[in-house]
Nucleic acid binder design. Structure first.
Length: 104
DNA sequence: CCGTTGACCCTTC
DNA sequence: AGAAGGGCCAACG
């Protein structure tokens, strides 16, 4: 069976441990496609059950989901449950990447 | 098959 | 230092 790029993304994302987060660009780089960050986002938008999509955030450490199936609140809630501290600034949510960024 | 589509990122004003 | 614009590339219709 042919595995497409999306599947590879899912496999990698599943390896991120609880309590850590990764950025879209980071995931793309690990897959040898540093410029495919947007594809990672697309892949996660269609992620099947079992993929911890909530652990992927953008480069600034901000939760980026806006008008999709899941509200930002849900993502934040899950991450907090996993032990991550999240700060609120204006109407956005921020994570301290220095502290929580996953490194292989 | 070809154009469009993005949960992004980097360079340049 | 902050905003804006363009590039990127596989999947989808």
């Amino acid at each position: 069976m042919k595995i497409d790029f999306y599947q590879v993304v899912y496999n990698l994302v599943k390896k991120i441990p609880k309590g850590k987060v990764a950025t879209y660009g980071q995931v793309a780089s690990l897959l040898d496609k540093p410029k495919a960050a947007r594809l990672v986002g697309l892949a996660l938008a269609r992620s099947p059950a079992g993929v911890p999509w909530q652990r992927i955030i953008n480069r600034k450490g901000m939760v980026s989901i806006e008008n999709l199936n899941y509200p930002k609140e849900l993502q934040v809630k899950i991450l907090q449950k996993e032990g991550i501290k999240i700060m609120r600034r204006d109407n956005n949510w921020w994570i301290d990447l220095k502290q929580y960024l996953w490194s292989k």
